[in-house]
Design a protein around this nucleic acid. Structure first.
Lengths: 130, 130
DNA sequence: TGCCCTAGTATCATGATGTATACCATCCGA
DNA sequence: TCGGATGGTATACATCATGATACTAGGGCA
């Protein structure tokens, strides 16, 4: 399902990036792991809005895509550590930029809520060219 | 649904960014629009893998979030032009980086497919610490 | 015996996306 | 006058991704 994209270099490469990073929580997880190895519970506490189920899934997908490494310690209670691979670390600047952009965007909406309130398309169509 | 996130500055701002950009095609569309105003059909041809339905939806969401502007010309056949707002243009460098990363990531997988084939987690758990 | 801990699984409900098709109003050609 | 072509939407349905909640495993401990 992924290979038919990777084979066609003429398509926008962002589509490839979104195949890997498009998950709702992927980049947030990567951002957390940029600060170093963390275990499952730490990630869960750092991202309180994510479900256990989703955290597990996204981590497994990230592992399958070669972005994170999963290390299981056979202890009781269980202990599983996650850390970034080289490929995962290569997203450092992108994650930083997205984080900064998110913070800035929140400010834009707080300052000028017109942008977020312009959800009525009708008014805009009225001033359309004739 | 979005405001409860925007009110809590302690959460990772990437979550905010993903609320807006998380759509499967949002960034690819933005990347296309970075080269200038385009009409619906042009975007559709530039992104052959997206369906009309999804293109319409994602564009409407981007408009609602203040990233793109939609201009309807009352002609027949209809003509609708889409262009980026200032907020949309602020994603220029991020889109560029993601595009470059996608291209690089595709190369990584082509060169060393080990990363993309490590989908069997069992082997890795065996070498886990005891 | 029964409860706690961590890292999950299992189950069900909701949302996002893919696919196919109908629609609209006008222009054009027969 | 009729039917097709046009460009952007809208609807119906199927599938995948995500969310919410409950439950498991297995040793430590009271």
């Amino acid at each position: 399902m992924r290979d038919d994209i990777t084979d066609s270099p003429d398509y926008c490469s962002i589509e490839i990036a979104m195949e890997v990073l498009g998950g709702r929580w992927k980049l947030a997880i990567l951002k957390q792991l940029l600060s170093g190895t963390q275990r499952f519970g730490e990630l869960r506490r750092a991202l309180p809005r994510i479900t256990q189920r989703m955290l597990t899934r996204q981590l497994r997908e990230l592992e399958a895509d070669g972005l994170v490494t999963r290390t299981v310690y056979r202890e009781v209670p269980p202990k599983v550590e996650y850390s970034l691979t080289e490929v995962g670390r290569s997203l450092d600047d992108i994650a930083g930029l997205l984080d900064a952009w998110g913070r800035w965007y929140r400010g834009v909406h707080a300052a000028g809520p017109a942008a977020s309130q312009g959800r009525t398309t009708a008014a805009r169509e009225d001033r359309a060219a004739v």
